Simulated scan of single mutants.
Amino acid sequence: MDEAGKRPSKIEEMTEKKTFRPKRAMILAAGLGKRMRPLTATTPKPLVEVAGKALIDRSLDRLVDAGVETAVVNVHWLADLVEVHLARRSSPKIEISDERGALLETGGGIVRALDKLGPDPFLLFNSDSFWIEGSRPNLEVMFEAWDESRMEALLMLASTVETVGYAGPGDFVMERDGLLARREERKVAPFVYAGTALLHPRLFEGAPEGAFSLNMLFDKAIEADRLYGVRMDGLWLHVGTPDAIAKAETKIRESAA
């Protein structure tokens, strides 16, 4: 309550809320890129170009626009090529999480990098997808929606039927307040995880050592009612196969027309 004993209105509470802006991010770039072969026989998937720009640079440019200062990038397959490419960038600052010795999957890779990511919530990007913005910058929407008191993770979600390069049954159903639940078996879910998330380091408390999927921790957060999502505005482009490159390039040309 204020000095006069009045309870702040909902609008006043929203106005007073300070938007969280992460300064660090992680880009998952250590995968083998098997579905992208034969391109990835000699080129790591993060360096595959779409419309003249490497996939990983699309992620890094997005982070710069959002004010992220440091990006941790994990490397494994053709790691030297990824490191040489990243050394050419002046921003954001790049820190390498080396997985040459063993591929740790999505969850294990983040656990390996936690010391570099620090104690605050951080952004996570998959390096094989990006999006064409809609009317509002999607990362800004995520930052505004973040609520550390309720969330362990906040996922960017795309409509299952409004994507490029994705043909699966979806991942999640979402309540009006953003709370997420898994798709039921043999059913189609309205939303697919778009490969971008805001994660609190406490999500990884008690996580196993070695290789494991981040999905295991998403399920743990669901059980605690602490996994949330926001629907992205725009078009999600998943570039997981050679065929998807041409489809993504077509959509990029159409959006620029």
Rank of each mutant, 00 (worst) to 15 (best):
M14K: 05
T15Q: 10
K17M: 04
F20D: 05
R21S: 08
R21L: 12
A29D: 05
A29S: 14
G33S: 12
M36C: 12
M36R: 09
P44F: 06
L47E: 06
V48N: 05
V48I: 15
D57S: 12
R58S: 01
R58Q: 10
L60K: 11
D61E: 15
R62Y: 08
D65E: 15
V68H: 10
A71K: 09
H76P: 00
L78Q: 15
E83A: 01
L86H: 02
L86M: 06
S91R: 15
E95C: 05
I96F: 01
D98V: 00
L104A: 05
F122R: 03
L123Y: 12
N126Y: 15
D128Y: 13
F130H: 05
W131P: 01
G134K: 06
R136C: 04
N138F: 08
L139D: 04
L139K: 03
E140I: 00
A145C: 01
D147L: 03
E148D: 14
S149Q: 12
M151T: 10
M151P: 10
L155C: 11
S159T: 07
T160V: 15
V161Q: 14
V164T: 14
Y166D: 09
G168T: 12
G168A: 14
D171Q: 02
F172W: 13
F172K: 02
F172E: 05
V173K: 11
V173F: 12
E175M: 10
R186L: 11
K187M: 13
V188R: 14
V188Y: 06
F191V: 02
G195D: 09
G195E: 09
A197M: 07
L199E: 04
L203T: 03
P208A: 08
E209S: 13
S213Q: 06
F218V: 03
A224R: 15
Y228N: 04
G229C: 03
D233A: 10
G234T: 06
G234W: 04
W236S: 01
V239P: 01
T241S: 14
I245P: 06
A248C: 10
A248D: 02
E249Q: 07
K251N: 03
R253A: 10
A256V: 02
A256F: 02
A256Y: 01
